[in-house]
Structures are given as structure tokens and as C-alpha cells.
Amino acid sequence: MLKTLLDGAVMMAYLACALFFLRFHRQSRDRLFAFFALAFALMGLHNLLGTVVGQDLDSENRHYLYVVRLVAYLLILGGIWDKNRAGRSAR
């Protein structure tokens, strides 16, 4: 019960970060903030899936849920790469 409550609080924090970066994306039109917003939304989705679906899966099949988190981290790395690549062409 307490683990579910804490997972919900962490999910809410991830989604608040996603909204924070989405607001900055709308103000600045910088794609880096869009990548970060999408990544944090996916991490919130991972917490939701881990809470809802993870209870039904045994520990051997739970590793498939981490693909969502891997995609989120790859989005962050891709956003940083895109920002640095765009900065070089502007020089």
C-alpha cells in the first residue's frame, strides 16, 4: 500500500517536470525542452506501468517494463546531441 502511494508521488513529480519543460518549450520553441518533456512523461508512464502491470508480472518478466525508461533516457541523450549539433552549424 505504501509503495503504491510513493510510486504515485514519484509519477506526479515526473509529470510535473514534464509540464515544466513543456512550458519552456512553448515559450522558447527550443526542441531540447520538448525532448526533456517527452522523456519525463515516459518516466511517469514507466512508474504507472510498474505499479499497475508490475504487480501481475513475476520478477522474471518485469524487465520488459524498463524499455520505456530506456527510451526516455535515449530521448534525453538525443535531445542533448541535437542541441549540440545545431549549435555547431550556427557558428
Rank of each mutant, 00 (worst) to 15 (best):
G8V: 04
F20H: 13
F24K: 15
H63S: 15
M12N: 10
A39C: 03
A34M: 06
F24Y: 15
V68C: 01
L45G: 09
L19Y: 10
Q27R: 15
L74N: 07
G50T: 09
L49G: 09
L2V: 05
L48A: 12
W81M: 07
L38D: 00
S28P: 04
L57H: 10
V53T: 11
A39Y: 00
L77D: 07
G50V: 01
I80K: 04
R91H: 11
Y64W: 12
H46N: 09
R85Q: 13
F36E: 07
A72M: 01
L74R: 05
L70R: 03
H63Y: 15
A9N: 03
N61Y: 09
A72V: 00
N47I: 07
L70C: 07
F20S: 14
M43Q: 09
R23I: 12
W81P: 01
G78P: 07
L15M: 04
Q55A: 12
E60K: 06
A34K: 11
R69Y: 15
G50E: 11
C17M: 12
A16L: 14
G44E: 05
I80Q: 04
L65P: 02
H63T: 15
D58M: 05
L22W: 14
M11K: 01
L6S: 06
Y64Q: 10
R26C: 13
R69S: 15
L74T: 09
V68H: 00
A39Q: 00
G50C: 02
R62W: 12
G54E: 03
